[in-house]
Design a protein around this nucleic acid. Structure first.
Lengths: 330, 330
DNA sequence: GCATGGGATGACAACGTTGTCATGTAGACA
DNA sequence: TGTCTACATGACAACGTTGTCATCCCATGC
């Protein structure tokens, strides 16, 4: 910047004014400055700028998601990015891999870079560690899973209602032995979904049978193994509910390998590409990760802009999409 | 930091030393400093630090990919992140949407934040605009698509060889009328793949028939429409090659809707989840995006660490995975 | 002609940190 | 005891920018 000022024969401050598009610079000088910065291929240093600026904004936000390569999470990420782009804000993204320690490291790394806000799909169960960041002025929004021990905005799916809908759907098709395959029970959403299953069974006056439930399944392989085992048991379920998209895929693999894909019903939580192209198509309770991401980003930027109203919980609805697998009778 | 120094009754510099783990601080003082920063919940400001530091490193890199939510691109992203994490470097990611303008904006935004390096899956055809960044000391690695007009490292798939393998595979199964569905021809990789198709046809002494080729297909819907149209023509192909994963999915949809999925052969470029669960399973030329990401990040960090050896082109092999759809006869 | 006002411009300090160098202190050795 | 060495510590400037305030210049109104 100093070099540009020298070339244009103006003061540093004038260059700063031009770079920031402030008013009060004569067109003649502005032109000279622009020409000089072009010649010297000057690039504004935003880190120095945000260090000095009174509002201290870095025009950067941090996103902590389970895995940037996971379809649900990356759709969230993309939706957040789309909102951020409009505000000329950049997104730092990191994968927590459902590891509490890793989540904290990411938050800490983001905080060191003075992000203006954080959107977190959290793996932790106690978010008090974020109070310091909050106090330091970092806006905070939880997505997919609510905060605990901390009063913060969150954007979540109505997990229990979604799974209850799945149970009802299967009951309407005559099922009484409905198996359940769930993700790590430590994950809040996984627990809510399992809870929905239990509650709706009660509502439907169906006896809860723990032998039909497998929890803590992480990834396609584990889900496939658990589903296989369940289906090969002496009294197998006539229908399965999968509590997460990779689990749905694993369950379908198991059904296929046992040649049961047209015999045993399957309803998955969370939609996925090609679900309609399998045989039969997979009936799912679809979430709307893009809507969640957009909403989370919207709320975050409102907070960054100084909205101090009480924290809110925003719930995004699920939608039942019937494609065949959920309409198989017992 | 000043407050910490005051609390611990030491100078700013001593706090700096402790924070950076420099030697030459007595354990007694270090303890006092640590205690004080804990009490005040002090957070090191990395932006100020990298501003002052002689090496100017921000411990941040930028990644420009087609779409953070695209499976290929997000796998790249994740692999890059894994390498970066080990070096305590954070990743800024952005989606270019195959838009040259957007790519430049992202690069510019990253440069303003003084990233140490950039990994770019480029949508542009002239990368001379990056010379300024390069001269400013930003390391540069191209991934998936090579640089042009600029001598820079790149990590690419052997696209032509992969498609030629697909053509040979279909010829070995008796096909002579092989259709080709390609992505935007402007994308360098798409052009290479199409080129591979043309070359291998010549090699196999099969007359090239432009009526069997559809290019510039973007996304599942367009690919599906083009495949449908091709299959319904008066002299349809007996086999299809799809030049990209979404195109493969679109082509399969078309086959399914026309009930030709067990009659017309299909080989896709780039693997995707559930390809083995379709009926028939989809034979693909698989790329290895994780390996590409790891390699690109490895090369980038070598450059950041001061490696000035000549730029290299790293080629990652493809692999033919047979699953049924490519083994259907004419 | 002179005071007044307003817009353009620049000098200077400060943001939070680290590199450089000077200073202080204690122990080793002659 | 005096000198030297080695190590611990701190004072100060500087990184690239922007906020504050002073200054300058010219037009306007009386």
């Amino acid at each position: 910047m100093r070099d540009v000022a020298a070339q244009a024969k103006v003061s540093l401050k004038t260059v700063s004014r031009v770079v920031n598009g402030e008013s009060g610079v004569s067109p003649r000088l502005a032109k000279r400055v622009l020409a000089a910065s072009e010649r010297l291929s000057y690039r504004h240093n935003l880190t120095a700028s945000s260090l000095r600026r009174s509002d201290g904004r870095s025009r950067t936000i941090g996103v902590v998601i389970e895995d940037v390569a996971n379809p649900f999470a990356s759709t969230l990420h993309r939706a957040i990015e789309d909102v951020a782009v409009e505000r000329r804000v950049l997104v730092l993204a990191g994968s927590s891999d459902e590891d509490e320690q890793r989540e904290r490291e990411l938050v800490s790394a983001f905080a060191s870079r003075r992000v203006d806000g954080l959107i977190i799909q959290s793996s932790s169960h106690d978010h008090r560690y974020l109070m310091a960041e909050r106090k330091a002025g970092v806006a905070l929004v939880f997505v997919d899973r609510p905060a605990s021990g901390l009063d913060a905005d969150c954007v979540v799916t109505d997990n229990a209602a979604g799974i209850r809908r799945a149970v009802r759907h299967l009951v309407e098709h005559g099922h009484g032995r409905i198996g359940y395959l769930g993700d790590l029970h430590l994950i809040a959403t996984a627990a809510e979904r399992h809870q929905g299953y239990v509650e709706e069974l009660a509502e439907q006056k169906i006896r809860f049978d723990p032998a039909l439930v497998r929890l803590d399944l992480r990834g396609i392989e584990k889900a496939e193994a658990a589903a296989s085992e369940l289906l090969r048991s002496s009294r197998p379920p006539t229908a399965l509910i999968a509590g997460q998209n990779l689990i749905t895929i694993g369950a379908f693999r198991a059904l296929r390998h046992l040649n049961l894909n047209r015999r045993v019903a399957l309803v998955g939580f969370d939609d996925f590409v090609l679900a309609d192209m399998l045989e039969p198509g997979i009936t799912v309770i679809a979430q709307d990760p893009a809507a969640m991401g957009r909403m989370a980003a919207g709320v975050l930027f409102q907070r960054i802009d100084g909205d101090h109203s009480p924290a809110q919980r925003h719930t995004v609805r699920t939608r039942l999409i019937t494609r065949g697998s959920g309409e198989i009778g017992p």
